[in-house]
C-alpha cells in the first residue's frame, strides 16, 4: 500500500506492506534510526515519536496508519544546529547514561511539558510511567524536565 507522510518536515512516499510497523518504517525505510525498539510491545517507550502532535509508541502502530500524518522524531527536534531545550536539559542534568531510552524519553517529555508547563514531580513521574530507563533511576530525568520547564518560564 502506498503511504505519504511528513517526517521532520520532509515528505516521504513509499509502498509498504500493510503489516509493517511504524517504527520499522521510520528506522528502515526512512532511515531515521534515532527511535529505538526496546520491547516491541509498547511497554518500554524507546520507540516514542510524535504523530500529529501526540506522543505515540511507534512499535504498536502500523506504518499505513500514519498515512497522511505529520511525524516528528528525535532527529527533528533540534533546529539549525540548536538543540531543543529538552535535549539541552537532558544533557545538563545527566538525564541519560547508555542513551538507548533517551530519544523516546525526550519525545515523551515533550508531551508532558506541553500538558503541564509547570509540572509537579508527581506529574513528571506519572507522565514518564510508560517509558523505562534502566540506567538513571529517573532522578536526573525528573531534574531535566524541571529544568526545561523552568527555562521555558523565563
Amino acid at each position: 500500500m502506498k503511504i505519504t507522510c511528513t517526517i521532520n518536515g520532509k515528505t516521504y512516499s513509499n509502498d509498504v506492506e500493510t503489516r509493517l510497523l511504524l517504527i520499522h518504517y521510520l528506522r528502515e525505510v526512512a532511515q531515521l534510526t534515532g527511535s529505538h525498539v526496546g520491547c516491541e510491545t509498547s511497554l518500554c517507550g524507546a520507540c516514542t515519536v510524535e504523530v500529529n502532535g501526540k506522543a505515540v509508541k511507534s512499535c504498536t502502530m502500523f506504518a499505513v496508519q500514519a498515512d497522511g500524518a505529520k511525524i516528528t522524531t528525535i532527529e527533528g527536534l533540534a533546529s539549525n544546529g540548536t538543540l531543543h531545550p529538552l535535549q539541552e536539559a537532558f544533557w545538563n542534568e545527566h538525564g541519560l547514561q547508555c542513551g538507548f531510552c533517551t530519544p523516546g524519553m525526550i519525545m515523551a517529555s515533550k508531551q508532558i511539558l506541553e500538558r503541564y508547563p509547570n509540572p509537579t514531580e508527581d506529574e513528571i513521574r506519572h507522565g514518564l510511567a510508560g517509558n523505562v530507563c534502566r540506567c538513571t533511576g529517573y532522578q536526573h530525568i525528573v531534574n531535566a524536565l524541571k529544568a526545561a520547564a523552568a527555562g521555558a518560564r523565563k
Partner: peptide, 21 residues
C-alpha cells in the same frame, strides 16, 4: 562536567548495532 558522549545520544544520531546497515 556534563558528558561529552551525550550530543550524539540526545540527537538520535548514535549508532547501536541495530542501526548498522
Amino acid at each position: 562536567l556534563r558528558r561529552r558522549e551525550d550530543p550524539r545520544l540526545i540527537t538520535g544520531t548514535a549508532t547501536y548495532v541495530d542501526d548498522i546497515h
